[in-house]
Nucleic acid binder design. Sequence first.
DNA 1: AATGAATGAGCGTTCATTCAT
DNA 2: TATGAATGAACGCTCATTCAT
Lengths: 207, 207, 207, 207
Amino acid sequence: MLNTRKARGPYKSGLKTQKTIIEAAQNLLVDEGYHNFSLRKVALKAGISGGNLQHHFKSKEELIVAMLDSLITVYLETFKTLSDSALAPKERLRKILEHVILDLNTKSTTLLFPELWSLSNHDRRISESVDGMYERYRAVLKDCIVEINPKLSATQVEKAALFMSASIEGHTVFIGYKRNWTHHTHSIIEMAYASFLFLIESGSIPE
Amino acid sequence: MLNTRKARGPYKSGLKTQKTIIEAAQNLLVDEGYHNFSLRKVALKAGISGGNLQHHFKSKEELIVAMLDSLITVYLETFKTLSDSALAPKERLRKILEHVILDLNTKSTTLLFPELWSLSNHDRRISESVDGMYERYRAVLKDCIVEINPKLSATQVEKAALFMSASIEGHTVFIGYKRNWTHHTHSIIEMAYASFLFLIESGSIPE
Amino acid sequence: MLNTRKARGPYKSGLKTQKTIIEAAQNLLVDEGYHNFSLRKVALKAGISGGNLQHHFKSKEELIVAMLDSLITVYLETFKTLSDSALAPKERLRKILEHVILDLNTKSTTLLFPELWSLSNHDRRISESVDGMYERYRAVLKDCIVEINPKLSATQVEKAALFMSASIEGHTVFIGYKRNWTHHTHSIIEMAYASFLFLIESGSIPE
Amino acid sequence: MLNTRKARGPYKSGLKTQKTIIEAAQNLLVDEGYHNFSLRKVALKAGISGGNLQHHFKSKEELIVAMLDSLITVYLETFKTLSDSALAPKERLRKILEHVILDLNTKSTTLLFPELWSLSNHDRRISESVDGMYERYRAVLKDCIVEINPKLSATQVEKAALFMSASIEGHTVFIGYKRNWTHHTHSIIEMAYASFLFLIESGSIPE
DNA sequence: AATGAATGAGCGTTCATTCAT
DNA sequence: TATGAATGAACGCTCATTCAT
């Protein structure tokens, strides 16, 4: 979320600057990776002075957190859309798989997520944000699963959703933007749909 | 030139120091992540001077590459062992899945791989090393797949191996060392085995 | 971009610091020579932190160039004064020779110019600055020469000025500050005046 | 001079190595200037290890001094040749001027001498070597001068030689290798000969 | 709200030198 | 005679951060 002030609140131009900063930060993270991420470069990309950047975000961590919040918000909105669909459950599952797997091809997803996973390993605040996002992700899947096979127990549904989401995420490194197997993306969607549906319908999921 | 006995090679003590350095570097990468990785810290961990570190590895990149080579070598040896097994194909698949998925629980795998994926996105030399490793990984899987269902075409086998390996890798972030779903590791193995076997035997893999 | 008031320029205190830095740099170059010149020493002499030095001059080269510009400016102002003189041409030539040859005795000229000549050999930007300075130097001499003997062609004037200025510069190493022949400075002035005047008046200069 | 050992003396291959080192050092000094001169680079150019370099020359200064000695020796030999000539004095003067001024055009003279002048300003041992060389240089000129005009006093001869040699040296920076006025070299020789001869014959030299 | 000034720590790297082999 | 191992200081430079303007 954007920085919010207790009293009097940020001026309009301040809000605009904060947005500019966050966009610059995201682009930088995508283009250079976190190990080449610095506040100086963000300020340069945003076209503002270092002093002003620090005026809006007190520390590097504060900027990172704000940036990830804004980033994750976008994904959460997508999940909401996917879950609202009025389609039959299997059709919905297919649509979801198509959407999230095709998204792996985009430059920002391919480059951003490995950074998130790495950061999660070394920063609790970030890992909590990321975990929260994945929980919402699985929630969408769980709705689908339970509709397809209502006999499954809650833990079975939970485990299936975990297995499915983790499996999908793993493809980032292989079929992502400018990666070696991008051209197999649609085959991956087919295999995912087939094997996940089998899992759900056959119920071969440990209790 | 002048001296024909030039290529006399490193002394014993030098080789030992190089090993110490590489181990220190790996530990540092695991403990702090690449964004906190510095040659000074490596030298400190290895108990040598910065000058000596630079004597053995001319640049940071050279050290990173040597470190990854040594790291990847270990995984390659494991794959060799897994592939040599005399078990029936389905049993072998099960053993492989068990082994690689349980390996995700280890501290070094959990923490190292996200760094590799991130680095791969920004350094060609590293991405080539990592890609090479995954190729060998898939080769082991492909041997299994083709034995289980000999009717599959070469591209089907290729795609199945890609799907399987990518799916497994994705679990690192979820069931890895000190992560939220570590206790579901065995359930993940079951689901992986069941769904992968279905995929292979049913042949529901695009051409 | 975002901020239209961007080019607000440096503060007063900043300008003062920059001056301090340039003076420190010149003193260091005089005292230790370019091969012992370092930004750390400049910062120390200027009484500021290394980080602040880099804030004012982005790189070592930028500082060197700024320092030489300031240094050369002083010489250019002198040339202007010498050329404005209302004296008869021969008298003016004498005054110029006296001034520039006596200047060779000063510590900063004796020690600085060999550094400039050496640097010119390895850095285009510096050689261009130095060449520009010598061009202005010769311009002053050419004005004199042409007034003393108007029959000389343009190329003769050019060559005479080149010969005269180069000859004078050569004495730096011999009659400079604390050098072996400093006490011959006035004799050098006499010989220079006599021989240069002969050259100009006799016209024994190739076309 | 090459390093000489008290007892047993250097082996043949050692002498050869020393020569290789000194040549590498001279080339490096020409190519990069003293401010980029380092023992590592010398060892690299010579194709030997740093340790071996230090075995032959205990310190950087020792190498520099040996290198300059070898360099100056070459010039001294040239002076001897010039002075032995059986020509009439004026002809000899002309030949000398031609030789030394044409020599300024060579890469090594153009690039080496400014380094020598700079080093002389900061190292007594070097300035003594260089001064000694110039003394021999002037000795050759003095022989000529006194033959051309035997009426000149010893101090007049001394001053004329100083003026002449210094004037010539000054042209290094202007008509040297790849410098702006190289094409005026022959005109410079003419002007030098004419004006120096006037000075000597007219006796307009202070006592 | 925004700039420039300033700090102090840390970075990868080069360097001259010493010493064991 | 020669190499490789090792040190410790210094280098130019980047960085996150604080503060005056």
